[in-house]
Write a protein that binds this DNA or RNA. Structure first.
Length: 299
RNA sequence: GGUGCCAUAGCUCAGUUGGUAGAGCAACGGACUGAAAAUCCGUGUGUCCCUAGUUCGAUUCUUGGUGGCACCA
């Protein structure tokens, strides 16, 4: 029987976790997280990791399995997740992948091109140059990879710096290393998107932030405060709390900003997922229809 | 009750010596390959409170309302 990865995606707060528990129970499937923040320990409240009951209801993978101080990238994720899937598919015909990080989902389903890893020293140097003489970096990129220079968002330091980083480390133009062709996986992929009317989604997000505060987000953030400069903590829910701790904003303002920034994040996710024509969209309550769809494809 | 000030975008406000208007924030749209809950780009969404005048033309000036604020009673 063909192995199938059912990918459950959607904006933050759409109810992916609850859906995944229902589907996992129905199919006896394990759950692999595709969330770029939930795999850190100590961030359970702010990243809305599955709770104890949900974790007990189905085997979860890539949840709280890394330290906040670890530098973990989508490249690491692709490698680890594929290895893990290989193992899971020995025991299961169906595995669920659940989360909202579009880039990580793409890394899992289509693979990343074979590009050099980030080099911290080089990156730091490029970032410094960007701050002082951005024109210099742009000129350098234009010389090393004129094609990409034309296409890239030249106002976005992350794009420019990464492209240069790849050019310098590989000795080849960034764009020639970007084949952009999806890699063939040895399992089937079925993408299920969870969606809600905008107003409802935003109301759920607001409510969930209040629930996070009630569940101890402030205390959790306080524990993580000394680590606030780490990448793992460049995250909605924590940054705003850190600003509150620094005295820049009040607690109420922090809560409002977390709500606003979560809504903006949800919008960005919606834009990203909207481009993927493979996604079958459902409301969070339509688990019966999802089960029928999955059953029809797997049997 | 009297006097004065104010009324312009979702909010706070600017402005038009009379030619139907613009900032910040919010909102909305988009991009995205090893930092991605990150990072970046784009868009003004408007009975200029109502009414009657003056005028070729009024959001702008004048009359009378309405609402708000302040002061005096």
């Amino acid at each position: 029987m063909a192995k199938t990865l059912v990918v459950i995606l959607g904006p933050t707060g759409s109810g992916k976790t609850a859906v995944s528990i229902t589907l996992a129970a129905r199919f006896g499937a394990p759950i692999l997280s595709t969330d770029s923040r939930q795999f850190y320990r100590g961030m359970a409240v702010g990243t809305a990791q599955p709770d104890a009951a949900q974790l007990a209801a189905a085997p979860h993978h890539m949840i709280a399995n890394h330290e906040v101080a670890e530098h973990y990238t989508c490249g690491d994720y692709e490698r680890d997740a594929l290895a893990l899937l290989d193992e899971l598919f020995r025991e299961h015909d169906l595995v669920l992948a659940v989360g909202g990080s579009g880039l990580y989902i793409d890394a899992l389903c289509e693979g990343l091109d074979d590009l050099p890893e980030a080099d911290p020293a080089l990156r730091e140097e490029l970032e410094r140059t960007w701050k002082e003489e951005p024109q210099k970096l742009l000129a350098q990129l234009q010389a090393l990879d004129p094609g990409y220079y034309e296409r890239v968002d030249r106002a976005n330091p992350k794009r420019v710096v990464r492209a240069l980083e790849v050019c310098l480390k590989s000795g080849a133009p960034y764009s020639t290393l970007r084949r952009g062709k999806p890699q063939q996986r040895d399992f089937n992929i079925l993408k299920i998107g969870i969606t809600l009317p905008r107003e409802e989604l935003y109301a759920r997000i607001d409510r969930r932030v209040d629930e996070m505060m009630a569940a101890g987000l402030e205390a959790e953030a306080r524990t993580l405060y000394p680590l606030r400069h780490l990448n793992a903590l460049q995250t909605v829910g924590y940054r705003e709390m850190f600003d509150y701790f620094d005295g820049t904003i009040t607690r109420d303002q922090a809560v409002e900003l977390i709500k606003r920034n979560s809504r903006r994040y949800a919008k960005r996710q919606t834009t990203w997922f909207g481009r993927d024509a493979q996604v079958h969209w459902f409301a969070p309550g339509q688990t019966d229809t999802m089960i029928a769809l999955i059953g029809g494809i797997c049997d």
